[in-house]
Design a binder for these strands. Structure first.
Length: 475
RNA sequence: CGGGGUGUAGCGCAGUCCGGUUAGCGCACCUGCUUUGGGAGCAGGGGGCCGUCAGUUCGAAUCUGACCACCCCGACCA
């Protein structure tokens, strides 16, 4: 048992706070709801950025940057959008010691400022599609915050694309939610449901919203990414038209899509354990740490020299040699466990003598003795295996926690235990979702793309429904 | 915004009820020696406008009043 970490079974919420703190990922800032992301946490965000950015570029997107401050009037141009975001906006009213002519909103999202620019950038079908992403911070005045999961300011990427037709925008929104699914599975090792949000849960100003939803270890769902088909709503609000091949002037079709530092919270709650953080190898800034073990200066020189010899020619970002003299090996073992490093190598005088090392996997705690020859290849294999194991473990857990229920009474009872619930609910009627939330604090998380072709009665109203939705309590 | 709690060293706390030496303890930090295969030991040392402001008093961390901040639990959200 790790010192300073509450057991998951005892208090999941406190466990999460303890892991973030003990792994030295982030801390609260003096401003309510804001966080300082420390190097250990930010390094993971950088890995997320690097890999996602590559995936965006591979699908034809380019990066740009739009300003933090948005004229308040812009936000008001799209009716649903302003209604959705106004309550959580911070507004700048003064600058340079003077009251501003027009207040400036700190962006809660950038559709409005971006579409104001797009008006000037788009005049012909030849300008389309316009496929732009930005990495940025945004601000949303939340009532209740949790490190990484919901903070007042957070880091994210937001893609904003413009297309000539409804169909192309639809393809884009779908393509990007699939990019998110692939990223979640392959990098976060996090299984997700992929589907569409109900009208109640969709983005303010969108025709519809696609999403990936993951199930955390405590049985609560986490919205991990969203992709919106915005139709011509923003084009109309900002008068963005283009002249098509047929010489007609037409409104531009839009999408937007984003994932945030919340993914780090999801990563923690998917894989970590009572010993601390567990980082999937593909997101680990440094996947391997080598702890040389010595009793005296001679042994120190010996084991350090061996460690340097073994790692000769290795990518410097692949490993770290922990040569600190002020801590004992036991302390280091615990520290690297808390910090979630995928593989720890122990290298003592006995190992040097036998030309071997002891490798310890973070996911299983398993210790194996490996030859110092060909070590790099064996470590690569082990990392792949850890990555695959973490995903499989999470997938098995999610499947075991996914239930199919038809009776509302049964649902009300079982929802308390957490999990995804495949149910018939008539979400066309907004009152149904309101009742669900009022009765059970759960919501419809998504209408999965891969739901089997089934029909049945809504478990609340009895109205006939096509296809099951997935409901759960969520973060 | 409602309910609960907390502000004393970087962190975690005691002291406050019942005012009175130089405000104390653990962890962390610095120095030295011994240690080092699962969170080391001993010795010495540094570090405080006791949340803020005002009051009572010869004297306030302690009593009174006001204010501020943060955390936890409920109504909104990625």
């Amino acid at each position: 048992m790790a010192k300073g970490i509450t057991e998951r079974a005892k208090d999941y919420s406190q466990w999460y706070i303890d892991v973030v703190k003990q792994a030295d990922m982030a801390e609260h800032s003096p401003v309510k709801g804001c966080m300082v992301i420390k190097p250990t946490g930010y390094g993971i965000w950088e890995k997320i950025q690097q890999n996602l950015d590559r995936m965006f570029k591979e699908t034809g997107h380019v990066n740009a940057y739009f300003p933090l401050l948005i004229p308040e009037s812009f936000l008001k141009k799209e009716a649903e959008h302003v209604e959705g975001f106004a309550p959580e906006c911070a507004v700048v009213t003064h600058g340079g010691g003077k009251k501003l002519e027009e207040p400036l909103v700190v962006r809660p999202t950038s559709e409005t400022i971006i579409w104001d620019s797009y008006r000037n950038w788009i005049s012909s079908y030849r300008d389309l599609p316009l496929l732009i992403n930005q990495w940025a911070n945004v601000l949303r005045w939340e009532m209740r915050t949790r490190l990484f999961l919901r903070t007042t300011e957070f880091l994210w990427q937001e893609g904003h694309t413009a297309h000539a037709t409804h169909e192309e925008a639809e393809e884009e929104a779908y393509r990007m939610v699939q990019v998110y699914r692939r990223f979640a599975e392959e990098f976060l090792a996090m299984p997700v449901l992929v589907g569409r949000k109900t009208d109640k849960e969709k983005f303010a100003g969108a025709l519809h919203t696609y999403c990936i939803e993951a199930l955390m270890q405590d049985g609560k769902a986490l919205q991990a990414g969203t992709s919106h088909h915005l139709g011509t709503n923003f084009a109309k609000a900002f008068d963005v038209q283009f002249q098509d091949r047929d010489s007609e002037r037409k409104y531009v079709h839009a999408t937007s899509w984003g994932v945030s530092t919340r993914l780090i919270g999801g990563m923690i709650m998917t894989h970590s354990d009572d010993s601390g953080l567990v980082i999937p190898p593909r997101l680990a800034p440094v996947p391997v740490v080598i702890v040389p073990i010595w009793r005296d200066d001679d042994q120190m020189a010996l084991t350090l020299a061996k460690a340097r010899h073994i790692t000769e020619g290795w990518d410097k970002l692949f490993y770290k040699i922990d040569d600190r003299d002020q801590y004992k090996p036991g302390y280091k073992f615990n520290e690297w466990e808390l910090k979630g490093i995928p593989i720890r190598i122990e290298l003592g005088p006995r190992d040097v003598e036998n030309n071997q090392v002891v490798a310890v996997r973070r996911d299983t705690g398993e210790k194996v003795t490996l030859s110092a020859d060909g070590l790099r290849e064996n470590l690569e294999k082990m990392l792949d295996d850890i990555q695959a194991n973490l995903f499989q473990r999470a997938k098995d857990r999610t499947e075991a926690s996914t239930h199919t229920v038809d009776s509302y009474d049964e649902y009300k009872e079982r929802i308390k235990g957490g999990g995804f619930f495949r149910v018939f609910l008539n979400h066309a009627d907004p009152k149904v979702e309101e009742r669900l939330q009022g009765d059970t604090k759960s919501t419809i998380r998504c209408i999965p793309f891969d739901a089997p072709d089934e029909e049945g009665p809504c478990m609340i109203t009895g109205a006939p429904c096509k296809g099951r939705v997935v409901a759960a309590q969520s973060y």
